[in-house]
C-alpha cells in the first residue's frame, strides 16, 4: 500500500483487517458481517420495542390531550414553546394540504402521521415544502423557513405525528468502498453512478445529489420523500447509510484526474465533444489547409 493513503483520513484502519465488501458472501456460510448484523439487529429490536411502546404511550397521551383541544387550539398546556411556534407555522403554511391534524387531504397532500421530524427536515430544508403548485414532483428551491422555524415545525410534527428522528454524530463515518457498493445497488439506478440524478416516468425526476448535505441525504433515505423508496434502519443500517453518504460526498468532491469532467455524463457529453470540438477543429484545420496562401 502506498504511504499516502487517501482513505486514511476517511476510514482509519489502524492495522485491523479491513472488511472486504465482496459481492460473494451470499455463499451459504454466514459471513462475519452477517453475524454482526444479527447482533446489532438484536439490539435494535429491543430499542424498537421500547420505541414502539414509547410511541404508543405518547400517541395515547397526545390523543387524549389533543382531541378535546381540537375545537379550541389554545390552552394545551403540554405543548412546548417550540411545538406551539411550529403549530403556528403549520397552520399558516401547511394545513391546506396536510390537514388540521396531519391527516392529509385527498388529492392535495399526504398524511404526515408517522413521517417524523426527519421527513420535515428534508422537505422543508431543501425547499420542497411548502409546495408552490401541484406538479409531477416537488422541485428543490431555497428554503422558505429559517433553521429555527424548521426546528419548530419538526418539533410540532414529531410531537403530533411521530416517526423517524434526526440522526446524530458524524454522518460520513462509514466505509467508503462499502458505501460505493451499496450506492450502486440501491441508489445509482435513479440517481446515476455519480449522483447526477436522472429522469423518471412522466416528468418526475430523481434529483442530483451534488452539493446535498449529509443530513439531507440521510433523512431522504430514512423517509423516502415523494417517489423515493424508504430505506428504513432495518434495511440499510445507520452505518450503511453513513457509508453511502461518505461515498456520495467523496465522489462529489473529488477532482477529475483526466481533465474536464464534461458533467461526468458519459457518452452523451463525449459524443457532443467529439463532434463539436474534435470534428469542428479538424474541419477548421482542413479549410485552412485548402485555402490559398
Amino acid at each position: 500500500m502506498s504511504t499516502t493513503n487517501p482513505q486514511s483520513d476517511a476510514q482509519p484502519d489502524g492495522g485491523s483487517p479491513r472488511v472486504r465488501w465482496s459481492r460473494r458472501p451470499a455463499d451459504g456460510t454466514p459471513a462475519a458481517a452477517a453475524r454482526a448484523r444479527r447482533r446489532s439487529k438484536h439490539r435494535r429490536r429491543v430499542v424498537n420495542v421500547a420505541g414502539l411502546m414509547a410511541a404508543l404511550v405518547l400517541t395515547g397521551a397526545l390523543y387524549s390531550a389533543l382531541s378535546p383541544a381540537y375545537a379550541t387550539n389554545e390552552g394545551s398546556g403540554s405543548e412546548s414553546a417550540a411545538e406551539a411556534a411550529g403549530r403556528e407555522l403549520y397552520e399558516r403554511s401547511c394545513i391546506s394540504c396536510h390537514g388540521e391534524n396531519l391527516e392529509g387531504v385527498p388529492t392535495r397532500g399526504p398524511s404526515l402521521v408517522g413521517v417524523g421530524e426527519a421527513a420535515v427536515y428534508f422537505q422543508v430544508h431543501t425547499g420542497r415544502m411548502p409546495l408552490v403548485r401541484q406538479e409531477a414532483d416537488a422541485p428543490d428551491k431555497p428554503a422558505v423557513f429559517s433553521d429555527e422555524e424548521i426546528d419548530q415545525l419538526m418539533a410540532y410534527v414529531q410531537a403530533n405525528g411521530g416517526g423517524p428522528t434526526l440522526p446524530s454524530g458524524d454522518l460520513r463515518d462509514g466505509d467508503l468502498a462499502q458505501g460505493g457498493e451499496l450506492f450502486r445497488l440501491n441508489c445509482a439506478s435513479c440517481h446515476n453512478f455519480v449522483g447526477q440524478g436522472g429522469a423518471l416516468s412522466s416528468g418526475k425526476a430523481a434529483p442530483s445529489l451534488e452539493g446535498s448535505s449529509a443530513l439531507e441525504i440521510y433523512t431522504a433515505m430514512l423517509t423516502g420523500p415523494e417517489n423515493m423508496p424508504v430505506f428504513g434502519d432495518n434495511q440499510l443500517t445507520p452505518d450503511e447509510k453513513r457509508a453511502i453518504i461518505n461515498y456520495v460526498q467523496t465522489i462529489d468532491n473529488q477532482a477529475d484526474p483526466g481533465g474536464a469532467g464534461v458533467g461526468r455524463m458519459g457518452p452523451v457529453a463525449e459524443g457532443l465533444v467529439i463532434w463539436v470540438v474534435g470534428i469542428g477543429v479538424l474541419l477548421f484545420g482542413i479549410f485552412w489547409m485548402g485555402s490559398k496562401a
Binding site: 459481492r23 460505493g180 457498493e181 450502486r184 445497488l185 445509482a188 439506478s189 435513479c190 440517481h191 446515476n192 453512478f193 455519480v194 447526477q196 440524478g197 436522472g198 429522469a199 430523481a206 465522489i251 477529475d256 484526474p257 483526466g258 481533465g259 474536464a260 469532467g261 464534461v262 461526468r264 455524463m265 458519459g266 457518452p267 452523451v268 463525449e270 465533444v273 470540438v277
Partner: peptide, 23 residues
Amino acid sequence: LVQINPVWLWGPYNPAQVSSASQ
C-alpha cells in the same frame, strides 16, 4: 484535457446494478 469514460466512477459490473442515463 477532457475526461472520457471514467470507469472508476462507474464501478465494476454487477448484473444486479445499473445506473440511470446508461448510454
